[in-house]
C-alpha cells in the first residue's frame, strides 16, 4: 500500500518514520503475522516430523 494514500498531511519535516508506516499497514502486518509462524512453527516442525527415520 503506498504510504501517501489516505495519509493525512503531517507537520514538521513530513517524513513518517519507517516503523510507524509498518505499524500503520494492517495488511503488511497480516502477511508477517502469518509468515513467521508458518515458517518457523509449521514448516520447520513438519519437516522434522517427516524426516523421522524408520525403526531399525
Amino acid at each position: 500500500m503506498p504510504e501517501s494514500e489516505g495519509k493525512p498531511p503531517v507537520e514538521g519535516d513530513g517524513r513518517v518514520p519507517f516503523m510507524q508506516r509498518l505499524l500503520d499497514n494492517p495488511f503488511l502486518l497480516l502477511f508477517l503475522g502469518i509468515l513467521v509462524p508458518t515458517v518457523f512453527y509449521l514448516l520447520w516442525g513438519i519437516m522434522e516430523i517427516v524426516q523421522i527415520p524408520v525403526a531399525p
Binding site: P37, F40, Y41, W44, I52
Partner: peptide, 26 residues
C-alpha cells in the same frame, strides 16, 4: 503479531522426534 503464535510448541515439548532447536526457538 510476529511471535505469539510460535508458542503452539508448548504442546510439543515431550513429543517424539522434534528437535530441541525447534522446541527452544518456538
Amino acid at each position: 503479531i510476529l511471535f505469539l503464535q510460535l508458542a503452539s510448541a508448548h504442546h510439543m515439548l515431550v513429543e517424539p522426534g522434534v528437535s530441541s532447536e525447534w522446541k527452544i526457538f518456538n
